[in-house]
């Protein structure tokens, strides 16, 4: 376990070296959030949703943007180039399980890079004037469930990313698959339109898939737009998906490594 944890340390180290990137990312997310909020305000003047109130939606948007780089399908270029250019040779010479090494590398990359951006947003957003600000969680229970589902969501997203990396073993190049993969994850994860605003049959479909469980669920729990019972049920689903993806992922990776081809001599 220690060996996987030290990826965190090193990755945080790298992230801290690039202050400009962290600040830039933070501003992007900040303005994106304001823009989305203004658009939704305009919508809500005409129609309202039964699923989620405007206040809840605003909190949802803030959290989603704050944690965006942690819970998004942006792939880790290290692992991508490693497979495409053949640097995977070195990875295979280490006494570690490749699947879990990538899993923790992805986690480390997302968390180390993401928290630097999320903390300032989480500090500033609640201080904004009413109608724009991030509200406190609806209750203590909701907050606890939010934290649990957020942690599961981060792991689930890393497992989803691993599916993408494993696919590179077959396709050998990330061109094409990258954009298809990104579009699927972002669309079903509710990045373009929050799942709560989608038609109800579509919502129930989305919540069967792992993408919304990884990128949407925690923020709905926090904002209180989801009943506690169903929240607990969906958290169970998160665990099931996480187990399913990691177990099948490990098996596929181990099998695939027997046939691996190293590109570029």
């Amino acid at each position: 376990m220690k060996k996987y944890l030290s990826f965190f340390k090193l990755r945080l180290n790298v992230a801290l070296q690039y202050r400009a990137a962290a600040i830039g990312g933070m501003f992007t997310q900040f303005f994106w959030a304001i823009m989305q909020i203004l658009i939704f305000q305009a919508f809500y003047r005409v129609v309202t949703s039964n699923n989620i109130s405007l206040e809840q939606l605003i909190s949802y948007v803030w959290l989603k943007q704050a944690f965006y780089s942690i819970i998004s399908a942006s792939s880790d270029s290290d692992i991508k180039t490693m497979i495409e250019k053949g640097n995977i040779s070195y990875e295979l010479c280490r006494p570690v399980n490749i699947y879990w090494m990538w899993f923790f590398k992805t986690l480390a990359n997302k968390i180390a890079g993401g928290f630097l951006k999320s903390i300032p947003i989480l500090i500033i957003a609640p201080l904004l004037p009413l109608g724009l600000s991030l509200q406190p969680p609806v209750g203590f229970m909701a907050f606890i469930l939010f934290i649990i589902s957020l942690m599961l969501a981060i792991c689930l997203m890393a497992a989803i990313m691993n599916v993408f990396y494993i696919s590179l073993f077959y396709t050998m190049s990330s061109k094409g698959t990258n954009s298809i993969f990104y579009a699927i994850v972002e669309f079903f994860g509710g990045t373009f339109v929050p799942i709560a605003l989608m038609p109800s049959f579509w919502q129930s479909f989305c919540y069967i898939l792992p993408f919304s469980l990884a990128a949407d669920l925690p923020f709905r729990i926090y904002s209180g737009s989801m009943a506690m019972n169903s929240a607990i049920g969906y958290i169970g689903m998160q665990i099931v998906w996480l187990l399913f993806l990691t177990i099948t992922g490990t098996i596929i990776t181990n099998n695939r490594l027997k046939k691996v081809v190293i590109q570029g001599g």
């Binding site: 220690k2 060996k3 944890l5 030290s6 990826f7 340390k9 090193l10 280490r94 006494p95 570690v96």
Partner: peptide, 11 residues
């Protein structure tokens, strides 16, 4: 820093 990481990887 890479050495430290390898230290942990190889126990």
């Amino acid at each position: 820093d890479s050495f430290e990481l390898l230290k942990d990887i190889y126990d």
